[in-house]
Design a protein around this nucleic acid. Sequence first.
DNA 1: AATGAAATGATAGCATT
DNA 2: AATGCTATCATTTCATT
Lengths: 150, 150
Amino acid sequence: MDRTDRRILAELQADGRLSITELAERIGLSVSPCHRRVRALEESGAIKGYRAQLDPAALSLEFSAIVFVTLREGDRSAVEAFETAVAEVPNVIQAQRLFGDPDYILHVVVRDLAAFQRIYDARLSSLPGVQRLTSTLVMKSVVEDRTLPL
Amino acid sequence: MDRTDRRILAELQADGRLSITELAERIGLSVSPCHRRVRALEESGAIKGYRAQLDPAALSLEFSAIVFVTLREGDRSAVEAFETAVAEVPNVIQAQRLFGDPDYILHVVVRDLAAFQRIYDARLSSLPGVQRLTSTLVMKSVVEDRTLPL
DNA sequence: AATGAAATGATAGCATT
DNA sequence: AATGCTATCATTTCATT
């Protein structure tokens, strides 16, 4: 992982569809070694994959909420059950375990408020081990899923 | 935005480097109309861009924290100043305005705890209009930046 | 490890239905 | 709007330095 690899990562993070040809030009390398490095970065896991970034609104996903989760004390065997169950709710696009209270923060994306209520009642409040849920509506994204600082 | 467009978006969200040829095969269309649709989705903004998904650990970004921000009451003119300033901190990879209290949730990625302390003291606590900051360490990602539900 | 070159495969424009 | 064709460009492998 040298300076050249970092430059490759920076370029591909900004534009995941850059051609190897264009990428090679930008970092001042010829096509073959550039190609080899990209493959190596993919295989080492430094590049986990490539994604199209979609506009949620274009898919009629207009409602975004943060849900804080506190699990029941003592019930610490339920941590795995909870994590497995939460990963099965497709509207939960991000879930992180925190230190302290709350135990988890979930990022939920849905069509509208009615859809949120449905998912909240049917899927979230019945997650195993849950003591308390607190929800907040996201008004807007000020900084939206930025590129990692290199 | 018909069924075919949605299938294109689903495929490209899962693999942003799919060739138009492969994509066309998967959705059962020939290459040219598939290509035309992808271009249209890009130009309409439904596809905002393409990104390589990087492993933060591969870049020695081992520390991730959530910071809750409450702004001072009355000081509501400072909202814009705060939002501009927070967008200039490269380690803040996500910032969302919430309804109620706290006013903002920030997702901060740094090299280590020492780097967090530095950024917290030098950049975050001096953000304009801030009344109170609360930080929590992210233990782990249970669901990591999932694909939008289609 | 990087380069150059050559075969295979993808993209993008255009004429046709 | 979709298809098929074609010229151009990109990818990927291999021989060479």
